[in-house]
Design a binder for these strands. Sequence first.
DNA 1: AAAAAAGTAAACCAACTGGTTGACAGAGCC
DNA 2: GGCTCTGTCAACCAGTTGGTTTACTTTTTT
Lengths: 141, 141
Amino acid sequence: MTEPLGIRILNRMVSFQPEMLDAVFHALAHPARREILRRLTERERNLSDLASPLEMSFPAASKHVRVLERAGLVERRVEGRSHVCRINAEPLRQVAEWTEAYRAFWEANFVRLDAVLEEMKAEAKRKPGGSAGEAAGGNER
Amino acid sequence: MTEPLGIRILNRMVSFQPEMLDAVFHALAHPARREILRRLTERERNLSDLASPLEMSFPAASKHVRVLERAGLVERRVEGRSHVCRINAEPLRQVAEWTEAYRAFWEANFVRLDAVLEEMKAEAKRKPGGSAGEAAGGNER
DNA sequence: AAAAAAGTAAACCAACTGGTTGACAGAGCC
DNA sequence: GGCTCTGTCAACCAGTTGGTTTACTTTTTT
């Protein structure tokens, strides 16, 4: 017998275990799987529906869905011969939480980059033919 | 010749390309690499420092750092024989941004789970020996 | 000058990924 | 009953990952 519904739900809510992050990050590390997720935000879809735009064989797409399922990002219910998939973004919330822990660092870094850019603009204004100006020109071309 | 500093910085700031997400998510999908990142939040560290607590050979740890580097999450500067690594959390900001796009879905899901739990608690109070109570007991033990 | 320390590079390995094809199973429709 | 649609499973394959060991370079220390 499988675990009771309550256990399964609670496990999912507190599951901040490293293996869980492994599975979720791994699942998100493939463009086809992110595309599947994105299309599941529009509506529920069955496997054929999910596979059709994915320039690969049907079994390959099916495997991608299963990877998302193992990561808890997709849930499926069987309706006759059709397997209907629904997004479960709860693991993404935990990814966001994990990522938040580094907010101070990326914000500090952003400020630093911003300062560098301000300095570059000032540099370009002072001597427009200089190396800083050359870099800016190369970028906007 | 390599690209000018300005170009490199600008590229990094607007680089929301899919391959970039591939690299970042892949880099985060291994506990050793997340541990490296976490320890880099405390201070800059050289490779030996990063490798020592990582129950694996030095070359293996060095490879992990390089994966983080390719994803833009770590930067290194060489000081004599020591390679000093610094965290660059900017790609994590982009991960957070990407994840935010699914906020509506995980929040909806969270509300739904919360409702289920409230229902379970009420159920447990009404008949403490029932299956719902059993599930809760199994969890808190 | 010799030894130690910090890293890289290369060769090798087992396991896993991401893809294919072909055979099969169940559900629905004519 | 037969055909089609939806999907799984198993076998197979090339390439990548994650790890090892050994050999080497460069820098610092003694």
